[in-house]
Write a protein that binds this DNA or RNA. Structure first.
Lengths: 185, 185
DNA sequence: CCCATATGAGACATTGATGTCTCACTCGGC
DNA sequence: GCCGAGTGAGACATCAATGTCTCATATGGG
């Protein structure tokens, strides 16, 4: 018997390959009937919203485990650099796992999720600002732009994996190094 | 009387704010009736596909006008750097105008468009590879990754504009400088 | 002024997905 | 062996969007 979490996992994997999949397709991918899927999640919205929540849970956990608040507050350059490295490395893995939530249309119209996204983004931006203050990141660009750039590189990393251009294993250092040092020689 | 191009333009602008807009919504945004919209584009697919084509036209034109083939073949570092700057600056504007085509689900499932996208991407990657050979870009990352990273930063630029975090006018230098030099101090 | 063309309004059939419900089955524990 | 919770299969109503069609209108050129 498939547990709710199993179903959620299968749905996530399938939506990662086709973000517009119908309930029927999701059920089939999860190896259960459409009726059973509806017993777990009354409406498609509820399923997708829950995946969105989990994605944000993961993002928040990644921020927590990297300790961005404490690291930012410390003002210690070395510590901030390590923290950024740890967080981005984990975020690359998260982006791979939660792929479709990065760009999903529906999730961008869900006020509750949107607000939480903003909160997490702001938290991250505060960290980038602290990194600027500590001399780890350049000060001549807005901290919010740095946040967007990091997001963009995560989208790029997902794309690189999907198109088979980069092995998942090599990706994190690539993203990290591009984020910090750019593409210039 | 709204010309076909007017309709296409209005559709593009509206789809940039809501990529899942119905034909009814698009018609209303274009200031015409649903019937007239259907006279211009028999099916929604046809409308979106044409916008995809135009987006690729623009991408190709931007590559052409920047002269990436000749610049790449020249092997001249200065020339390549200027070319990259010109192209990326234009691509930021293109990404703003053609926004939704960057991430649209449907366009990613249309074989014809997909193939053309690949061709243009490959062409650009060849230019990045030439930039590596000329010592303009670092050689320790795959050229294809550089291509993905550039794409990711375009997504980021669109995001930054939409969320109002960066003025459109400031965006190009920001993207360019982040692409080349990264976020590091 | 008249006519041809393009349009708007709206009816209509179709389609695909959604969400609800029933009924029969099966498998595991008692 | 029996019972009950969970399941699958499938019927069913609903809904939103699509695409087609008709007809009345207006608008602009000749």
């Amino acid at each position: 018997m498939a547990t709710r979490d199993d179903v959620l996992g299968a749905a996530l994997r399938h939506l990662n390959t086709d973000a517009t999949a119908s309930m029927a397709a999701i059920a089939e991918a999860a190896g259960i009937s459409r009726a059973t899927l509806h017993r777990h999640f009354a409406k498609r919205e509820a399923l997708v919203r829950e995946l969105g929540e989990r994605s944000l849970d993961r993002w928040e956990r990644t921020q927590d485990e990297a300790g961005i608040d404490a690291a930012g507050a410390s003002g210690d350059a070395e510590r901030i650099r390590d923290c950024a490295t740890a967080m981005l490395t984990q975020l690359v893995a998260d982006a791979d796992e939660f792929g479709f939530t990065l760009v999903d249309e529906f999730l961008c119209t869900e006020p509750a999720l949107l607000e939480r996204t903003d909160r997490l983004f702001d938290r991250e931006v505060a960290f980038w600002a602290a990194a600027q203050d500590a001399g780890v990141l350049r000060r001549d660009v807005p901290a919010r732009w740095i946040g967007h750039a990091a997001y963009g590189l995560l989208v790029a990393s997902r794309d690189a994996i999907r198109s088979g251009d980069v092995a998942p294993r090599d990706l994190a250092p690539l993203v990290l190094s591009t984020f910090l040092d750019g593409a210039s020689a």
